[in-house]
């Protein structure tokens, strides 16, 4: 089994494609650093700037007619957070390595897309190149081959998340300095109150929840890869599902059945920051939903991969 896992990993990391994707991710982090640096206000001028922000937010919130619910919620949270910073004399514009890393964590969408590329390709590419016949006519059973491919996918997801995290902190430290590890991050919690959390703890929470979302989303791509046997199709459908799924849940959030859609549940951050997207949803419910989807998707992949005849390609 360990040998099969080595094989699957080699087939990922001996391809230049993988390294190009990671390089793109690092370039994207660099771009975020550059944008952040060029938009920083002058030192010392943050208080008047924040006061202006609060005033314009209040004006905006007075005329919310026609605005989507989510946008109003965002404005309200921003206002709460800005007021909190003013009251506790915290400079929200000052950027350091850790704070930058929290900003750069928004690139998780890009990291996820890259993970879906590998996950959507890992089974399908064997069919596309015909190597599936070589792979399945050795002594390893199909179940073991599929398991090794799935584990290699998750390991790649973990590695890509690490690339994002480590390079965010490293580039942040190089551009903004490494100080500020103890600084607090302010955020609006699930019940609408402003809270503080150590920036490192906040980062770990963000990344932890991203890993959960990554496992579930990569499993979708992996399942599509075994079903479609076409890399292009499974990657496209997986990325589209990932991008559209979240928006769809947002758009349909007034219906309560939406909570049974996988994408309403994949982001567990909602139970700690900002509050659940659909009223009545709980952390336990989301975990149960994810496990249910997870079992069905893996079961389906396994059943199809093991039972299907490998005929003319």
């Amino acid at each position: 089994m360990i040998n099969l896992l080595i094989n699957e990993n080699l087939k990922i990391y001996l391809r230049s494609r993988t390294w190009i994707l990671w390089a793109l991710l690092v370039v994207a982090i660099g771009l975020v650093a550059w944008t952040t640096l060029s938009s920083q206000p002058h030192v010392g001028a943050w208080r008047p700037q924040l006061i202006t922000n609060v005033q314009s937010l209040q004006t905006a919130l007075a005329h919310t007619k026609g605005l989507p619910r989510a946008s109003v919620q965002q404005l309200r949270e921003q206002l709460l957070s800005d007021r909190y910073d003013l009251k506790h004399n915290l400079d929200p514009f000052r950027t350091d390595a850790w704070k930058f890393a929290s900003t750069a964590a928004n690139l998780d969408v890009l990291a996820m897309a890259f993970i879906l590329v590998i996950a959507g390709d890992i089974v399908a590419s064997e069919y596309a190149t015909g190597t599936i016949k070589m792979l399945l006519t050795q002594t390893a059973t199909r179940t073991r081959i599929l398991v090794s491919k799935y584990l290699a996918t998750l390991l790649f997801g973990l590695a890509t998340t690490l690339v994002l995290g480590v390079f965010s902190i490293a580039i942040g430290a190089a551009v903004f300095g490494a100080q500020g590890a103890g600084a607090p991050t302010t955020y609006v919690n699930a019940t609408g109150h402003v809270e503080q959390m150590g920036v490192i703890a906040y980062l770990l929470m963000t990344y932890g929840f991203f890993l959960v979302e990554m496992i579930v989303t990569a499993t979708i791509a992996f399942m599509l890869s075994t079903i479609f046997r076409s890399s292009a199709l499974s990657i496209t459908v997986a990325i589209l599902t990932f991008l559209v799924g979240s928006t769809l849940v947002e758009a349909l959030s007034r219906f309560s059945w939406v909570k049974y859609i996988l994408f309403a549940n994949t982001n567990l951050t909602q139970y700690f920051v900002g509050g659940p997207r659909i009223a009545g949803m709980t952390l336990g419910f989301s975990i149960e939903m994810m496990i249910a989807y997870f079992i069905v998707m893996l079961g389906l992949s396994w059943w199809i991969f093991v039972k299907r005849d490998v005929s003319y390609s």
């Binding site: 087939k11 001996l14 190149t129 015909g130 190597t131 070589m134 792979l135 050795q138 390609s313």
Partner: peptide, 22 residues
């Protein structure tokens, strides 16, 4: 049918890959 191997690997890497499987 055709002896399809991994094009991005060398001949030796391909053989090692299949050797690890048995």
């Amino acid at each position: 049918e055709n002896p399809e191997m991994y094009g991005f690997l060398s001949g030796r890497q391909n053989l090692r890959h299949f050797a690890r499987m048995c």
